[in-house]
Design a protein around this nucleic acid. Structure first.
Length: 334
DNA sequence: AACTAATGCAACCGCCATACA
DNA sequence: TTGTATGGCGGTTGCATTAGT
């Protein structure tokens, strides 16, 4: 049995609001308020609308001090920063932008701002992006890094680089306190040849929804990649401890020639605290932060993707002789 | 000028959390 | 403690408008 509808759908008007309806709703709320009950409001106001529809119309359009029109660069910056930190929690983001509604911000992000960011990351000279290959599409959006605790996770000294079965890795959403297994949430998570995954990889992926990052460190290679992994984990750990994720997006406005984002640990001191965070740079990255064993088909897709976009010349894409590691590829992709 | 594709945005849907009886 | 009603939210849809051919 399904859920009972919130109103009588048959006797309720849908679609765009007329100026008369707007005036009726506005007039009623200004005179009597919402009465703390949206469901009952349309009847009192003489409207043939669902209560939810009234609420939405009022909050998104009719209530006083709503700001419409162009978003400023400062608003763009705030939205990007918050999105990088908390993801698509539009109501929280809207609370930081007086006069803007969550719906407005959501629409703006989906239709314009995301593209604007892409324009910065991939200037027109770098060709138009094409759709991701199938297996890349299968990679689901990832939760916000700050909202999820993964068990098992890295030990404090970041010396462990074990792989686990996806079923044995649990994710706890720190907001809802709900638990799930990695296998449930990320059925297509990258696995090694034994079907195992590294929590370190998963800690990396959540940086942004719909963004994938492939990278490895070619010059600092050990048999298990521990060197680069340690570097990466330290960086993420420090970033998380400092609540500092705005490094992941350009925080100095738009229109500048920032093109790439990468983990630069050129001056990292693994034993101490001297670790550079992610940075936006305008030159081709030459060093990479971590190393992962990738599914072979996925690697092939990545390779095709890069060559199809003529990124091959810009991003040195190599595979190791055993086809188990993508040695040098690094960029973000929607 | 006519048609098609892309874009922008208001509105809807359905899920989840909370309040309350 | 449980069940139900409502509010709130994020994802998605559908339509009007604009841009491109």
């Amino acid at each position: 049995m399904g859920r009972a509808p919130c109103c009588d759908k048959a006797n309720v008007k849908k679609g765009p609001w007329s100026p008369e309806e707007d005036a009726q709703l506005k007039d009623h709320i200004e005179k009597y308020g919402t009465g703390g009950n949206w469901i009952a409001l349309p009847q009192k106001a003489g409207l043939k609308r669902c209560g939810k529809s009234c609420r939405l119309r009022w909050l998104n359009y009719l209530r006083p001090n709503i700001k419409h029109g162009e978003f400023t660069n400062e608003e763009d910056r705030i939205i990007c920063t918050l999105f990088a930190n908390i993801g698509s929690r539009w109501s929280i983001i809207a609370a930081q932008l007086p006069g803007r509604t969550d719906n407005d911000i959501k629409n703006y992000w989906n239709t314009k701002l995301k593209k604007k960011l892409m324009g910065i990351m991939f200037p027109p000279s770098q060709k138009k992006l094409r759709p991701l290959p199938t297996s890349l599409h299968q990679v689901p959006p990832f939760p916000n890094p700050q909202s999820v605790t993964m068990t098992p996770s890295m030990d404090k000294d970041c010396t462990s680089h074990n792989y686990y079965s996806p079923e044995t890795i649990s994710l706890t959403d720190n907001y809802s306190n709900s638990k799930t297994s990695l296998a449930n949430n990320f059925p297509t998570v990258l696995q090694n040849q034994e079907g195992l995954v590294s929590p370190m990889q998963m800690k990396y992926y959540p940086m942004k929804d719909n963004l994938l990052m492939f990278s490895s460190e070619a010059s600092c290679s050990t048999s298990d990649g521990s060197c680069s992994q340690i570097s990466y984990v330290r960086e993420m750990k420090l970033d998380q401890e400092m609540g500092n994720l705005q490094n992941y997006i350009p925080n100095n406005g738009f229109g500048e020639s920032h093109k790439f984002m990468f983990n630069n640990y050129e001056s990292s001191n693994f034993g101490g605290e001297n670790v550079n965070f992610n940075q936006w740079v305008d030159e081709k990255p030459t060093e990479f932060s971590w190393e992962t064993k990738m599914d072979y088909d996925l690697m092939e897709d990545v390779k095709k993707l890069i060559s199809s976009n003529n990124y091959g010349n810009e991003f040195n894409c190599l595979f190791d002789e055993n086809k188990t590691q993508l040695e040098k590829v690094m960029y973000y992709y929607y």
